[in-house]
Simulated scan of single mutants.
Amino acid sequence: MLATIDIGSNSILLLMGRIVNGRLQIEHQRKETIRLGGALDPSGNLQPQALERGLDCLRRYAGLMAQVAPEHRRAVATQTLREAHNRDIFLSQARTILGCAVELISGEREATLIYQGVSSLLPDSAAPRLVIDIGGRSTEICIGRHHTLQAAISCPIGSVAWAQRFFDQGTLAASCFEAAQAAAQAALQPHVKPLQALPWQQVFGSSGTAGAIGKALHQMDHPAGEISRAALHQLRAQLIQAGHIQHLPLPGVREELRPVIGGGVSIMCAVFDALQLQHMRVAQGALRHGLMFELHQSLPLHA
């Protein structure tokens, strides 16, 4: 049994399972919305209450992992802890709680693990794939073939950060979306230029933002697991019509994701525009899956 944990800016995610003949058999998975990314104070420190919320979540996960050997566990932390000046306090306590290393990973390494996780749960294909993961405080964009990553970028924009910056009072006005999309496109442009020279035939969206948008669109009678440019613009128009997160008519979106839906949709629109996308499929794989495959490969029993 293997266990991996992704300490993200919006959620902390646990995956437990086995890899048999190259295929992942999931035994247990859990997600808790802790929203560390919304709890950095003006000095860049993670606020004490949020720090404790995160550690409490890890204590619960440690209990669930009790039967997993420490050498079969791995955890990583991403953008919020890359930014937090007091990250060492959190990381030190997290290591003690989990009984394993907690790696603070770079944006580029995060992208590598995301691509590995997405590609490992897809049928093998020689078609070049574009994978996009909009997280709470960073967005990773990757291109690869089969299980081999060819290029990746990480941009410090995300659903939590953008919701705080442009939709702080829960207002979903057209002017908020215009400002949020313009800022996201400006941030993306220098990063995506190297990617535009590479071809891709398939486009996949990984993790929470893509999943939430996919579910919202399905509630609007669009095909399950599909995000088209036209449907995305229709969703944005519906959010603007609602006017506020308290009035959202989206039963498919979990309650804890509603406060960040404006940030996520505005960044997804900016990504579609920056890369001139028409269609995206929602992927099942994500960072925690890639981390599990990497952990499996590193074990002596695998060799």
Rank of each mutant, 00 (worst) to 15 (best):
N45P: 03
N45E: 10
L46K: 04
Q49C: 03
Q49M: 06
A50P: 09
R53K: 13
D56Q: 13
D56P: 01
C57G: 01
L58C: 06
L58W: 10
A62C: 04
L64P: 11
A66P: 08
Q67E: 15
Q67D: 15
Q67T: 15
Q67L: 14
A69M: 15
A75R: 11
A75V: 11
A77L: 06
Q79G: 02
R87N: 11
I89C: 04
L91C: 09
L91T: 13
Q93R: 14
Q93C: 04
A94Y: 11
A94V: 12
A94R: 15
E103D: 14
G107H: 14
G107T: 14
T112N: 10
T112R: 15
Q116W: 01
S119G: 03
S120R: 14
L121N: 09
P123K: 10
D124Y: 13
A126R: 08
P128D: 02
R129W: 00
L130G: 02
V131K: 06
R137C: 03
R137E: 05
T139V: 04
I141Y: 08
I141M: 08
R145F: 02
H146N: 15
T148A: 09
L149G: 12
I153R: 13
C155N: 06
P156F: 02
G158K: 08
A161V: 14
A161S: 13
L172W: 02
A173G: 08
S175W: 01
A179T: 09
Q185K: 14
